[in-house]
Design a protein around this nucleic acid. Structure first.
Lengths: 198, 198
DNA sequence: GAACTTATTGAACACCGTTTATTTCCGACA
DNA sequence: TGTCGGAAATAAACGGTGTTCAATAAGTTC
């Protein structure tokens, strides 16, 4: 039943990525499997391995797209922001909004851990860095009053901290006693952290 | 080959938990499997299911013990600390030290995500809260000068932020441009966040 | 020593990622 | 137009996973 030119390799790739995104959106990372993706696009597992070296490659494609969306959302939210505080705050809000909107897709970014010896693909790493670059740009104006190194540190701290609060909140690990939204907590973090800095 | 009373149920449980800890310590969460644990303690999978309802239960046992160790390490590190800053700083250091020392065991705490409908066991949740309580206690002195709500928020923000920085650092997602240790970054976070607070 | 009870096993089930021999189709050439 | 080579797609296999369960073997009781 080999259908030689129903779809090109690239088309199959694209179909597979979209199917994977759909599955992850509904069932989460745990629900993703090669056979499920293959069935959804009307091919068999073998075909999937003709187009991806490993399932890991497909996962990186899906996560890469999530990073792309995050980048677009965050940079859009930062358009026209005036101060480092405003910029960081706006981008953090956009980040959290996406995480709340599509928790499964967002969650897959950190749920997926690559096995022992493997390396993160360069293209994926670039997307991560591009995203982090937004935060770095935001705090750059502070460089006038502070050593470059401290400003770079601040960006890393903010990035990590926002991520951590968001993650604990999304996985319900911060509901110990009281109800603060991820937005509130991150807002407090950014305000307190940046006050007295610039 | 049924050996009726070689070990009691509790003994088998204990052996299984320790075997699982050993496996996770060496191969990480990914390397853990029911059959591997069973083989390591000289029983078959079936026996494991006589003692644990699901593999999930064993995982929670292992993670629970990790939380216990973290609690001991952190509270020991806080012994005799004077200011909120000192206490939070000391406990964060202990937290990071453990994560660096046993990255596989620490990593399993967040790598394991419980499937869709399931609930976190109460005993496990209690351990999480006990750990978070250390941070809460540390910042409590600030309550003299700030509303209770703000102090509670501060504890959550610090806890999430430390976790996030630690996680990104341990999974090499913060090595974008520059070399700051998790210790340094967390130190910056706590200092900046608490300065002007108390 | 036989009967009962139960801890333990081994095999089964349905899934997983991955590989491979085989089939089936398409395009090109005679 | 017919055939043949090459490649696309498949089906089946391999070794693994979590989980269940009938069968077995050992200890206890009579």
């Amino acid at each position: 039943m080999a259908r030689r030119s129903d779809h090109t390799r690239d088309e199959i790739r694209e179909m597979a990525i979209q199917a994977a995104e759909r599955i992850v959106g509904l069932e989460g990372y745990q629900g993703l499997s090669a056979r499920k993706v293959a069935a959804e696009i009307g091919y068999t597992v073998g075909t999937l391995y003709l187009v991806f070296d490993k399932l890991e490659d497909l996962i990186f494609q899906v996560n890469g797209r999530t990073l792309d969306v995050l980048y677009e959302r965050m940079s859009a939210a930062m358009a026209g922001c005036a101060s480092p505080y405003d910029c960081v705050s706006a981008s953090a809000r956009a980040y959290i909004d996406f995480a709340l909107e599509q928790p499964k897709r967002w969650g897959m970014i950190y749920e997926h851990v690559l096995p022992e010896g493997e390396k993160v693909p360069a293209a994926y790493q670039a997307k991560v860095e591009r995203l982090f670059g937004l935060v770095e740009e935001s705090v750059k104006p502070l460089a006038q009053r502070h050593p470059r190194r401290e400003v770079a540190q601040a960006a890393r701290v903010l990035w990590g901290a926002v991520h951590g609060i968001c993650m604990l909140k999304l996985t319900n690990k911060l509901d110990v006693a009281g109800e603060d939204s991820a937005h509130e907590l991150v807002e407090v973090l950014i305000r307190r952290f940046l006050q007295g800095f610039g």
